[in-house]
Simulated scan of single mutants.
Amino acid sequence: MENNQEGILLTSAEQSYLWTTYQADTMAVCVFNHFLQHIKDNEIKSLIVFALQLSEEHANFIREIFIKEKIQIPQGFTESDVNLHAERLFSDVFYLNYIKNMAKGGLVTYGRVLQNVYRKDILSFFSACLSQSIELNSRAIDISLKKGLAIRPPTIPYLEKLEFVHKQSFILEGLGRREALTGTEVTNLFANIQTNYIGTSLATAFSQVCKTKKAQNFFKRGKEIALKHIEVFSSYLKMSSLPVPGTYEQMVTQSKDAPYSDKLMMFHFSLMIYSGVGNYGLSTAETQRSDLVADYTRLNAEILKYSEDGANIMIAEKWLEQPPLAANRRDLAKG
C-alpha cells in the first residue's frame, strides 16, 4: 500500500480519523498482549493473535503516514500502559465476547469513516480496515457457534402475507399503544443490553484494579448507569415475552492486580461510552414507538453527561491527548 501521495494534503476528516484510529489500536495492542499471557483455549487464542496483528499493522501504517506528512505522532498507548505479568482479569469466554464486540464497533466506525475519505492511500487503508473487521467478526461468530456460546437475537414470526399500517397508533402511542415490537426494535434492544453487559463487566474489572480513586468511582458509577439502562431495555423485551441476554460479569476474576494503566482503562471506557451514544442514536432513528424513543433520548442524555465527567477526570490527570484542531483564526488575527 502506497503511504503517501505527494502534494495532496490530508483533509480534516482523514487526519482526525487516523489520529483516533491510532489511539484505539495502540490501546488494543496493550489489551490483546495481556490477554495472550493467560489464554488457554487455542481457537480463541488464534482469534486474539489475529486481532493483535491487525491492530499492530494499523498503528504502523498510521505512524508511517504521520512521519511522511510531518504530523506529530500521538503518544497513544505503549508498553508502559500494560503489565504483562499481572494476573488474569477475564475468562477465555469473555475474551471471545470482547473481540466480537470490538469487531462490531469496527464495522460501524469504518463504514462511517469511508464516507468522508478521498485520498486514495487513506481510502485503501480504511477499506482494508473494514474488510478486516468483517473477517474478525466472522471468525468470532464461527468460534461462538462451534462452542455453543453464540448469543443470537430472538426470533420473531415470519411474515405470511402483505399488510399495510392503517392506524397512526403504530407510531403515535398517545392514540393507542402498539404492544408488538418491530424486528428492528427487538434487535436494537437486544444488542444494547449485550453492549451494556460488556460495559458492566469492564467496569467491575477496572474498579477492582485501578489505582486512582476518581477513576474507581467513575467505573462504579458507570456500572450503575449500565445496569439501569439494561433494566429499561429488558422491560420492553419481557413485555413482549422475548428472551433477555445474560450478564458476562461471572467472567471477571477476583484479581486486584492491574494489567493496564488507569489512563488506558479510562480511555477504554470512554470508547465504550462513545460507542453507546452512537448505538442509542441509531436505535432512536430506527424505532417507531414514542415511549421507546423517549427512553433512548433520556438515557443518551445521561451517558453524555457521564462521558463529560470522564473527560474531566482525564484532563485533570493529564491523560487526555488533544486531537487535531482547526486553526484558531481569532488568535492568529491578534498578531
Rank of each mutant, 00 (worst) to 15 (best):
G222V: 01
S290K: 02
L84G: 10
S127G: 01
L320K: 15
K70N: 13
Q322E: 10
L136V: 08
G111T: 05
Q37E: 12
L123T: 13
S144K: 06
D121C: 08
L320P: 05
R63N: 13
A333Q: 08
I8W: 09
S201V: 04
K228M: 13
D25S: 12
N196I: 00
E6N: 05
A316S: 05
D25N: 14
I134H: 11
N328F: 01
T26S: 05
H166E: 09
E302K: 00
I39K: 05
L172R: 05
H34L: 03
P245N: 12
Y22I: 13
V49T: 12
M272L: 12
L299R: 07
N101W: 09
K238R: 07
L162M: 08
L84Y: 03
Q288V: 13
P245L: 06
A333D: 07
K256W: 00
S91C: 11
S207Y: 13
A59K: 02
L304C: 06
S283F: 08
L47V: 05
Y22Q: 10
E249L: 13
L159P: 11
L52V: 15
K100T: 05
P157S: 04
I8M: 08
T195F: 15
L299S: 06
C129P: 10
R298V: 06
N97T: 08
I65G: 12
S235K: 07
E160A: 03
V82Y: 02
E185C: 04
Y260G: 09
V113N: 10
H85E: 15
L36M: 11
Y260T: 04
Q168V: 14
V93K: 04
C30G: 04
F170V: 15
G148Q: 07
W19G: 01
R298S: 10
Y248A: 14
T109W: 10
E317M: 11
N300E: 03
A285R: 09
E6F: 06
I65W: 09
V82E: 02
E308R: 08
A285Y: 00
K104T: 09
F125R: 08
V49C: 11
K318E: 09
T78P: 08
L136W: 05
S133V: 11
H229M: 03
Y248G: 14
L114G: 07
E79T: 09
L84P: 11
G7V: 12
L162G: 04
R63I: 10
A294L: 03
P243K: 14
K68V: 11
K45I: 04
S80F: 05
N328M: 01
S234W: 01
Y158H: 08
V31S: 09
L107R: 02
Y236L: 04
D295T: 00
S131A: 15
R112L: 10
K167L: 10
P243Y: 11
D257K: 02
Q115D: 15
L136P: 07
I122A: 14
A258H: 03
V29E: 02
I151W: 14
T204S: 11
C210P: 02
V117W: 03
E69I: 00
L123V: 06
L325I: 01
Q322L: 03
D331C: 02
S201P: 01
P157W: 08
L299Q: 04
G310W: 06
K147R: 11
T21R: 09
F50S: 08
S169I: 14
I171R: 07
K228P: 03
S270W: 06
Q15A: 03
N42F: 14
A327Q: 01
N3D: 11
R63L: 15
T200D: 13
E14R: 00
H268Q: 13
G335C: 13
I73A: 10
D81S: 06
V293Q: 00
